[in-house]
Amino acid sequence: MFDSTAKAKRHGEARDFVRLMIAKAAGGGAATEYFKQRWPESRNIDVIQRAAVEPGKINGESWGDELSPERYLASAFVEITIAKSVFGRITGMRNVPFNIRFPVQTGAASFGWVPSGGIVPCSSMSFTTASFKPLKVGGIVVTTQELAKLAAPDAETIISADLAAGIGSFLDEAFLDPNNAGVVGESPASITYGAPHVDASGVTAVAAKDDLRRMLGSITTDMVAPYIVMRRTTALHLAAADGGLDADNGAFRFLGPNGGTIWGVPVLTTASVPQGAESPPHNRIIAFDAAELLVGDVGLEVDITEQADLLMDSEPDSPPTGSSVLVNLWQHNLTAFKATRFVNWQWRKSGAVSYIDKVEY
């Protein structure tokens, strides 16, 4: 009961964060009054009122900004919406702060049986140091001002879905794509880049189980927090193996399009698992030990403006060139929501990830 009540409270806070963004877009300098008049039933009106008088910024540059009302609601939005992505559903990762050097163990201590009167083994653990730089994921969602001012609940759903789905799916692809080598100082390499992999050996459930054994067998860590990630269609095909691919589907009886388990290992499903370049494209299945993954993440920030010239392009020229076409938001009656998230990841040690390529089952 407590869990469901707490979850409902967080859903309400996430919804009110989107409403606050709409109020800022539609209400201008009177965002608080606009919010109170449009959503008088909100349980977070007192939080919104504090946000209106909160001094300073909420972009992580000043002390105590984690306590600002707007960031409090934003954290709920991140928790509810980004949790739908693979990156948001993984538990067991090692969270580390940005811009602080921390030790990374590279050698384990030695232990052994000691006979009576014998000498106890002595060793020194070896460490190196590492530091996480905050890397930024961002995007801009442009809507008409009419949509922001629309009283129907659909307006909240549309804006919320655009903000959340864009960053969530992009992060998943960047996180999982074996071809993502990353760019130093700009973006991290995927967890699968340079990882060992096996090619699918067939299309039957028997072949799938053999491939899964080989994939999992190539992971050399302790598998403290193991995960398998695949596309929903792959999971559905494996789950239906008894009537289609093969009668021997015992490994997949707890599997479905929304995930499940294989041999007790949690399976996460997403449409963001990158496919191969073949035609038609082949799928991939990825396995990893999240306990060996270092992650830094400070959450989501959203800015709003109606006064800007934008390059309406998913791959804009940077910097703009003479041929770049700018769109004036004010002239076209548009509102832009800019979402950014500071996040980074890297493996603590090698041998924690593998994948199956050229999957056709």
Rank of each mutant, 00 (worst) to 15 (best):
A208Q: 02
R253I: 15
P280E: 01
V229R: 01
D246S: 13
I219C: 06
A205C: 12
L255C: 11
G260W: 11
W263Y: 14
N258F: 15
N249C: 11
P274G: 09
N258I: 15
D289P: 07
I304Q: 01
V295A: 04
N283R: 04
L300Y: 03
D303S: 14
E278I: 00
N249W: 07
A235G: 11
M230L: 14
D289L: 02
H237N: 13
T233E: 10
G259A: 13
T233G: 08
V273L: 07
R232Y: 10
A277W: 00
A240M: 12
G296C: 07
N249L: 08
Y227W: 13
I304N: 03
T204H: 06
M223N: 09
I304H: 02
A241E: 05
F288N: 00
I285H: 01
D303A: 14
L268G: 04
G217N: 10
L255A: 08
L245Y: 00
S272H: 07
A277R: 00
A290R: 01
A247P: 10
I228G: 01
A208T: 06
I286G: 01
G244S: 10
D222N: 10
D303F: 11
P266I: 13
K209L: 14
V273T: 05
G259L: 12
T221F: 04
L216R: 07
I228A: 06
V224D: 02
R253M: 15
V206T: 14
A239V: 11
G244E: 05
G250V: 13
G276E: 03
S279A: 05
P274W: 09
A291S: 12
E306V: 06
P266T: 12
P274Y: 12
I304D: 04
G243P: 01
D211P: 06
F254T: 15
R231L: 12
L268T: 08
I228M: 09
D242P: 09
S272R: 01
E278S: 09
T261D: 13
R232L: 08
A247V: 11
R284A: 06
A277E: 06
G217F: 09
T233C: 05
P281I: 00
A247I: 09
T270S: 13
D210C: 12
A235L: 11
D289F: 01
T234V: 15
V265T: 15
T220A: 07
R214V: 13
A251C: 14
G217H: 07
G296H: 03
E306N: 10
V267K: 02
